[in-house]
Each structure stands twice: as C-alpha cells, then as structure tokens.
C-alpha cells in the first residue's frame, strides 16, 4: 500500500504496516490422509506471529484457490505426500490464475522427489521444503518473501 502520509501520522490510525499481519493458507491437496506435517508447520507459522488459515485434508484445487481469494492471504503452503504433485500443482496454479491470484507466494512441503523439483518450480512454486527441513527455514522463507512483496507493492502504488 501507500507510504505514510502526513494525515496518517496526525490521526495515528491509517498506519500502513502497523497492524499488517502475514496471512498464510496451509492446504493439503489430494487424497493422502496424513496432516501431521501440515499441522506442525501451521503451528510454527503461528508461533512466528502469523495468521494461518488451515483448511484440513482432501482439498481440491478449486477449494484452495477459493479459500486464498476469500481470505486474501499473502502465501499458500501446499503439503503433499501422495505423489500427485505433478498432477495437482498445475491445476492449483491454474485455479489461482483464473481468480487473478497469480502473484501469490506459493510453496510446497512434503514428499517431492528431487527430480521433480525443477518442473515444480517451473509451475510457479517458489520453494520446496522436503522432509528434515528445519521449521525455522520455512518460516523465514515465508516472512522474507511476503515482506519483500509488501514493500514492492508499496512502491508500485
């Protein structure tokens, strides 16, 4: 948004950034029924001061994109263990584009073979966090990228 204006300083209210929380959607696309990892990352993001919208298991690409739109999130974390990422990720990105959300930060976690990572990134997934990634790394990634995006959109307007 816009940089500070004199009026905002005088009234002390329209303070850009002051109450700007990072909002993240954690979603589990597809059919695998295991959301421990998703819950752990949701909790880690919350503990880092972010607002996490958690939508549970078995999300379709349409559900994920619609939730992202209605919740106006800054980032989407996709947790996937089923191996269906090559089929599901392009559909998710397509549904996001359909709703004008192609500039959202989307990253993935779970089981994604190294061989698939270049193709996954090609789809617009910004990062892939495999098993054993320290929580802090994923949290830092979200914070840094979303903050950069916030700053960028301030400049643009």
């Amino acid at each position: 948004m816009v940089a500070k204006t004199p009026s905002s300083e005088a009234t002390g209210e329209e303070a850009p950034g002051a109450q700007q929380k990072i909002r993240v959607l954690i979603a589990k696309p597809g059919l695998d029924g295991h959301d421990r990892g998703a819950k752990i990352i949701a909790r880690a993001l919350r503990d880092a001061g972010m607002e996490v919208i958690y939508t549970g298991l078995h999300q379709t690409p349409e559900m994920i994109a619609e939730a992202a739109l209605q919740e106006d999130v800054d980032a989407i974390g996709l947790s996937i263990l089923s191996g269906a990422h090559m089929a599901l990720f392009p559909r998710i990105m397509g549904e996001l584009r359909k709703r004008g959300l192609s500039d959202l930060l989307v990253y993935a976690g779970g089981i994604i073979p190294d061989d698939d990572i270049p193709a996954v990134k090609e789809m617009g997934i910004a990062a892939v966090f495999g098993p054993g990634t320290p929580m802090e790394e994923a949290v830092r990634f979200v914070r840094e990228h979303v903050t950069a995006r916030h700053a960028q959109s301030e400049e643009e307007q």
């Binding site: 503990d47 607002e51 996490v52 549970g56």
Partner: peptide, 12 residues
C-alpha cells in the same frame, strides 16, 4: 497472546 499469531480453522 504469546506470539501474536493465530490458527484460523473455522473454514474447515
């Protein structure tokens, strides 16, 4: 109250 973060799960 500790972190200022939240998990919002009503959507489920």
């Amino acid at each position: 109250a500790v972190s200022g973060g939240a998990i919002l799960g009503d959507r489920i």
